[in-house]
Amino acid sequence: MKSLMDRARGARGALGALAIALVLITAAMLVAGASPIDGFAALFAGALGGTHQLGETLVQATALLFPALGIALAFRAGLFNIGAEGQLLVGGLAAGALGANVHLAPALAAVIMLGGGALAGGVWGGIAGWLKARFGANEIIATLMLNFIAASLTGYLVAGPLKSSPAGGPETAPLAHAYWLPVLLPYTRLSIALLIALAIAALLHVVLTRTVFGYELRAIGEAPEAARRAGISLQRMALLALASSGAIAGLGGASIVAGELHRFNTQLSPGYGYTAIAVALVGDLDARWICVAAFAFGILETGGLAMQAVANIPKDAIHVIEGVIVVLLAARRYVAARAAIAS
């Protein structure tokens, strides 16, 4: 059970990050010679100004929520899974390839696509887990390298064996309309993927706080030596943690394919798997706060895209802001720890 103190810390984390982001965006607009008033008007209107905009913000939030939850699961076990991007890609590819080639009842097809995506992501995360368990390989490097391998592999497959048509781009054939995930918010492309993500968040919260598996996960993360003495197999847990972490990210990739893009494309993700690291940290690795953080980042991503047209800020500038947030938030832990010592 987390203390009230811990909860307050989570809330401050998300709000503080949002505040820092706003200040940075203001500065960026001023330096680029744009009016912050117009810029923020565009940001605000672009992210929340109507049903469509809200829908887009929630689509972005959903796309970030899956990998962020997966990352949080691994981080809680003390394992740095920075391979969510690759896990998301292989999950999306599996869903796209299955969806284009199976002929089943729509509901069953959706289950097969999402299940296939989770499985592919799980295997991809599991490779790093297996390397960690079997050879003691550093999971940071392994997951990072697997991101690049995933990009090349999926790129090769959609340029060749899984290509939609001789004249098409690097993507799989479009899904039949019946296979699309149902739309949640009318007149937007927000699908029930959001509900699935929220269900995963609830499940993750329960698993981490109420089950033996969750207890063991946190144990190897917080006190590996004590966990080992208590008879928990670190190897087995590493494999399980990275595989399930990858499965959640892979499910996210599959839900983008089944829910919004309706095909797999190599440019499916603008780096959701990397941004999700920031989301997981802003959310204090707590499933509930990660939902809040994903929404805040959804606002930033969606509004940022609308803002660039008005404020002449390149789309990459949003990465500067995210980068600063990540470093500052990580430093915040240190400041908090020192304040605790001082008092």
């Binding site: 740095f80 920075i82 800020i313 500038a317 949003i318 995210e322 980068g323 600063v324 470093v327 990580a330």
Partner: peptide, 30 residues
């Protein structure tokens, strides 16, 4: 970040990648 501030190295390194690559794109404009 990694020594004095005890920030996690991976997190800080990831942040620096975002910062530098996005920052260069932004600096090109400015």
């Amino acid at each position: 970040a990694a020594t004095r501030l005890k920030v996690d190295q991976i997190v800080a390194g990831t942040g620096i990648n975002l910062l530098c690559i996005g920052g260069a794109a932004y600096a090109l404009v400015v």
